[in-house]
Design a protein around this nucleic acid. Sequence first.
DNA 1: TGTACATCAGTGAACGCGCGTTCACTGATGTAC
DNA 2: TGTACATCAGTGAACGCGCGTTCACTGATGTAC
Lengths: 197, 197
Amino acid sequence: LPRGEGDRLREDILAATEALLLETADESAVAMRAIADAVGVTPPSIYMHFADKDELILAVCARQFEKLDAYAANSLRGARDPLERLRRRGRAYIAFGVEHPAHYRILFMSKQRISWSDFDDDTMPGKRSFLQLVDDVQACIDAGRFRPVDAFVAATGIWAIVHGVTSLRIAMPGFPLVGEEVLTDFILDLVGRGMAP
Amino acid sequence: LPRGEGDRLREDILAATEALLLETADESAVAMRAIADAVGVTPPSIYMHFADKDELILAVCARQFEKLDAYAANSLRGARDPLERLRRRGRAYIAFGVEHPAHYRILFMSKQRISWSDFDDDTMPGKRSFLQLVDDVQACIDAGRFRPVDAFVAATGIWAIVHGVTSLRIAMPGFPLVGEEVLTDFILDLVGRGMAP
DNA sequence: TGTACATCAGTGAACGCGCGTTCACTGATGTAC
DNA sequence: TGTACATCAGTGAACGCGCGTTCACTGATGTAC
């Protein structure tokens, strides 16, 4: 138990929770005992680093939001055409959700686990992503690729559309009989056409 | 305890479960004890009519699907233009979800509560609705209102889009800062434009 | 340099709770003689 | 018509389980003299 390594356990706990959440795709299936086991530690030691389970899950969520941001940013590398940026953002969003279903559930499909007021306006991790989306939509309008509409409304709508595909994939893996690529392509194409001047 | 009224309790249980589900908007928050209390009966008596909790919830779901079908069908009364039918169907779907968030969650947002194979192909309650949606899309194509695309793919996409708005409303009631009407209008308008020839 | 002490991350065991479910029962209802 | 019996929907109490969390503790680590 070397003195300075107190934070390493904290990191281990976060990582283990993240991994378990990714495996089971269900928050309530991830027990504190299971997390402790995965880290190789007894349950009470988690409470040295997190006040309760909610705080732990929330911390994992904040991290996951950052990953989503990074995931999206990375997908944009080299894309300068605003419409192309929008398409890539959409694909990245869907891919992220499909690859991290449990995290996505907690972030966007769970029942009030995150009360959005827990974050102040600027820290709220998803907000940066959303504002970038608004910017891209506005860029499309300025470039004459989109009709001149309210960029905020349009961005919200586009977000809802992409979220629809993502959450359907997650919640009903077998049902949408249309292939993932086909559905994504259709949706992105539809948005492009529907927003055209 | 008159002999012939055995089925009345069954109905009462279904109704109470439905009501509790609607109130709490969370399946795991609805306990068998709570259901029994609401009916005015002891918990074990539920097991006279349903093998276990899953069967009870599933029965409520099947009912709810029927209501969704009826809700949609009712919204179409008198609408003969295929595009108008599609719009009404979309609005009905969103309204149904917003009004019955817990049921909607279980039907379309829960984790495999319903394994779709529990229903054979023709009984599956949502399927009828979906096939009607496919028909309406095909009608739009035939009437020259939509581009000639694969109606099944388009219907799936449109469903995903409407589902996106609905589930976002349910899961993140505060967040989409855009008013419900505005968002719905935007989405339906976008679909209409995007599908236009 | 050596010893006594304070610190505090992590331990082991348990608490209390709510859950789905089971089981032996009861007592009103319908039936057979 | 009256009595003894079978039926069976619903009861009351409890079981076993897993959960989040608490609490008194331990023992290696760093520190003071």
